[in-house]
Write a protein that binds this DNA or RNA. Structure first.
Length: 827
RNA sequence: GCCGCGGUGGCGGAAUUGGUUUACGCGUACGACUCAAAAUCGUAUGACCGAAAGGUUGUGUGGGUUCGACUCCCACCCGCGGCACCA
């Protein structure tokens, strides 16, 4: 056998696999299906680095195992190619983004092929392909028709110096990424998607899927459900009522003022009664100018002004309380106004202190909680600074100063107070979500045009479905305009069109969709990538969907993953996706850790520490790259690259190669029974570890096996065992194992073989090392058959010289025996 | 501030229905092969005491439960990630 020359072998097999279509997914085959999905990349000009490869390799291993287990596997790849970097590159170079995208996808594809990934390339998709985005636009039209897409005035990030609208990711620490100028707000009409309508289902259906717990928690926190009540405060001497949302109706007696958000629409209605209107107005105008970030940065100072001339009535005790306007209250949450309970909410407490407002304690902490609070307050030296603890007590407890509710527990009082006020029509139970509707417009060029037409007579009209796709027109300049409009706004012949309803002159929407639009539904398209009549054939969707295993970055846990679940649910609701599939697109979700550069420094072009897989492959070979990427550490954890470790992986492959050489010369039909048993243990471990993403320990057990094989003196490995070894190793090192497989004389690919199953009997047998402890300390180790009984082993153990020494003339109180593991003598 | 994750040799890490701490790999040292080096193969490798046998100690810190704790409980320290005026 020649020496191991990975580069030669790898290129050869990659070609053969492609020609033979080894990894083709077969539509509607009789075999059970398995849909394995990795997030498709944004093809940037820099190409892949070794961190991007890791999830591809991991799921490639899973896909290969599934095929060998008899599944018809769909493991596709495509390009999420609309986006800012390409557009910015176009602005700089004036090269059309389409050309840049073409170049970049070619680069990515070449790199991915180099890694020996078993993608079915016949299903490749690209979000910038009009044949694809036709359906992205179609989905938007359906949303519009169902009332889930609407226009609203929303602030965009605006750089006053560049005179340009910025995407969130272009705003760094509140400043423009390119010029450093402070970003301000600019109001603009934008398309919004009503994701909030799905908030409850997006939470509930998490129970149906197998996601990591932390991902579920992240999504739930992001949606931010909170249950409470809406309580109405009447305005003195008027018909007006101001509703507020609270989760703490039990503190209502302590509500000593109301606060409204500066944008609160009712304020204008009170204008005739307000005695300091000018002053209030000035405050509101200033607050509106501030960005959200600025408001937060001034968090410590809770500024605000009283609206003089009007008072609110606290419904529980009919006390008159003042009304303030302050920007620590947000317009988009709840009702845009709050009841302030300074004794039991730290923000209200801070505000009350600043404005010298009364602080009324209505909840007493229970038992030891009070003592602890007093203690920590006295340590801070802030006792009796408005409350007994010098700050707000935000926990629950027993009601005081609350009239007929005194002595009641918070938990019960919440219900009772709301029920009592409800009878008078002043309260009702309410639920609020932090989740906000999704701003779906971008004032940019390189995205899907929003297929809407504005007619002066008929208003916003959807482009008729037969006219889809609305293609992006060619433009000369890609810069956003100085008014904040999309660059498309300058393309006269494209904008001007006819109203689909009344045929009079009308104008197209010039905004485009955000990056997420194309990735919302791409996994559906892989099932039927070339369909011109519909998004995908229901027959094929029924066969392939749902996705069995979806891996992607943790950074998408709240955005892409939530958005795409929402869109799927919508498509399911309107039956664009067959009802029989259920309301969730992904059965199982996993996330990979980031790969850092050497010494734990983040890989970046500017630091010059980016490791390109092509270089690694050139120097060590693809299989080495694959084995190292999987062996370097736990898949889900952040980990840094170590070139020395790559060498270790190469050494391992070389060892396998050499052992094979020896095997081919001296092969015997029957080998060592010890190695057979060890192999079956390894088979079990590798099978299980791949399922739970523990590729590192799967490989370490394969290495252990090879170490035992190498030092084995009693006949080496039998032929069948050798074949089984190759099979369980093949997903990790597909080229090396395929080469050896063919050298064994087989014509059919190893990747089409059956995944070997371990024999449970063989796994259970064998000699293991037992521990002998005295009082829990290890004193001796001896070998024994794994199934040995307590009595027998005790005899054996007590006969050990080393143990006699410890036990003699002592009182043996107790003997603990753990089968297959240890014995412990308690003296 | 809140939520989540983590803390084990010189390094990446392994081990959790409580049962050998440091598997596997890297590094290092020594030896073999070689004119030599690299590669490869072999041996050793937590710390401390000891010539050795052996012993003591050891999984962020301090307590607890247990025959036995990296694993369980309580209190705390540190690091990372996310959210952050959401009433």
């Amino acid at each position: 056998m020649e020496t191991y020359k990975p580069q030669k072998i790898e290129k050869k097999w990659q070609r053969i696999w492609e020609i033979q279509g080894v990894y083709r997914a077969k539509d509607l085959s009789k075999k059970p299906k398995s849909y394995i999905l990795v997030e498709f990349p944004y093809p940037s000009g820099e190409g892949l680095h070794v961190g991007h490869c890791r999830p591809y390799i991991a799921l490639d291993i899973v896909a290969r195992k599934r095929r060998m287990e008899g599944f018809n596997v769909l493991f596709p790849m495509g390009w999420d190619a609309f986006g800012l970097p390409t557009e910015n590159y176009a602005i700089k170079t004036r090269i059309h983004p389409r050309i840049v995208t073409k170049k970049n996808t070619a680069l990515f594809k070449r790199q991915q092929k180099n890694i020996g990934l078993s993608f079915d390339w016949s299903r490749e998709i690209n979000t910038t392909d009009p044949a694809y985005y036709k359906w992205t636009q179609w989905i938007f039209l359906q949303l519009f028709k169902k009332g889930l897409a609407y226009k609203a005035k929303m602030p965009i990030n605006w750089c006053p110096s560049c005179k340009i609208g910025l995407a969130n990711e272009e705003v760094v620490d509140g400043s423009c990424e390119r010029c450093g100028e402070r970003v301000t707000k600019k109001e603009k009409e934008q398309w919004m998607l009503k994701i909030t309508k799905y908030a409850e289902r997006l939470i509930q259906d998490l129970d149906r899927v197998d996601y990591p717990e932390r991902v579920k928690v992240l999504q739930k926190d992001w949606i931010g459900k909170s249950e409470g009540a809406e309580i109405e405060f009447r305005i003195q001497n008027s018909e007006f009522r101001i509703p507020v949302f609270t989760t703490r109706a039990d503190t209502l007696f302590g509500a000593t003022y109301l606060v409204l958000a500066p944008e609160h629409p009712e304020i204008e209605n009170f204008k005739p009664h307000i005695t300091n209107y000018k002053f209030v107005k000035k405050y509101i105008e200033e607050a509106k100018k501030k960005t959200e970030r600025e408001r937060i940065s001034e968090m410590k100072e809770k500024m605000g002004v009283e609206i003089k001339g009007i008072k609110a009535i606290n419904p529980v005790n009919n006390r008159e309380i003042p009304i303030f306007v302050a920007d620590y209250v947000l317009i988009h949450y709840g009702t845009g106004g709050i009841m302030a309970v300074p004794a039991h909410d730290q923000r209200d407490f801070d505000f009350a202190k600043l404005h010298n407002l009364p602080i009324l304690e209505v909840i007493k902490p229970q038992n030891n909680a009070e003592g602890r609070l007093r203690q920590s307050a006295s340590q801070r030296g802030s006792l009796y600074n408005g409350t007994p603890y010098g700050r707000a007590y935000e926990g629950e407890g027993i009601l005081i100063n609350s009239g007929r509710f005194n002595g009641m527990k918070s938990e019960i009082a919440k219900e009772r107070i709301v029920a009592w006020l409800a009878k008078k029509g002043l309260a009702k139970k309410a639920v609020n979500y932090k989740l906000r509707d999704w701003i779906f417009s971008r004032q940019r060029y390189w995205g899907e045009p929003i297929p809407m037409i504005q007619c002066e007579r008929c208003g916003w009209q959807p482009v008729p479905e037969k006219d889809l796709p609305v293609k992006l027109p060619s433009v000369k300049k890609y810069q956003p305009t100085q008014t904040g409009e999309s660059p498309l706004a300058a393309v006269e012949r494209w904008i001007n069109t006819k109203c689909p309803k009344c045929s009079s002159l009308a104008k197209r929407e010039t905004d485009v969709m955000p990056n997420w639009a194309g990735s919302n539904w791409y996994y559906l398209r892989y099932c039927d990538p070339k369909n011109e009549k519909r998004l995908a054939d229901p027959k094929l969707l029924r066969y392939w969907m749902p996705v069995n295993w979806y891996n992607g970055g943790m950074e998408h846990a709240t955005l892409h993953l939530l958005y795409s679940r929402f869109i799927y649910k919508f498509l399911w609701d309107i039956k664009a996706v067959p009802k029989s599939l259920g309301p969730e697109p992904y059965k199982k979700r996993t996330s990979h850790g980031t790969v850092l550069g050497e010494k734990g420094i983040k890989m970046s072009k500017s630091r010059g520490n980016v490791i390109n897989p092509d270089q690694v492959i050139k120097e060590y070979g693809t299989d080495t790259l694959r084995v190292y990427e999987m062996f370097m550490g736990p898949f889900e954890q952040t980990i840094s690259w170590d070139t020395k470790g790559v060498k270790g992986a190469k050494r391992f492959l070389e060892r396998v190669w050499k052992l094979t050489g020896k095997f081919l010369v001296t092969q015997k039909p029957k080998g060592s029974s010890y190695l057979k048993k060890l192999l079956h243990k390894t088979m079990k471990k590798v099978s299980e570890d791949i399922e739970s993403l523990k590729f590192n320990t799967a490989l370490s057990s394969l290495m252990e096996f090879c170490n035992a094989w190498q030092t084995n003196k009693e006949g080496g490995l039998g032929k069948k065992d050798f074949k089984d070894f190759l099979k369980i190793f093949s997903p990790f090192a597909p080229h090396l194992t395929e080469e050896i497989w063919s050298q064994l004389g087989f014509k059919s690919s190893i990747h089409n073989q059956k995944w070997p199953k371990h024999d449970p009997k063989l796994v259970k047998e064998g000699i293991v090392t037992f521990i002998i402890q005295v009082n829990g300390r290890v004193r001796e180790k001896i070998e024994a058959e794994i199934g040995i009984s307590k009595r027998e082993f005790k005899k054996l153990a007590l006969a050990q010289e080393n143990i006699k020494k410890w036990i003699e003339r002592k009182n043996l109180k107790k003997t603990i025996f753990v089968p297959g593991k240890l014995i412990n003598f308690v003296i």
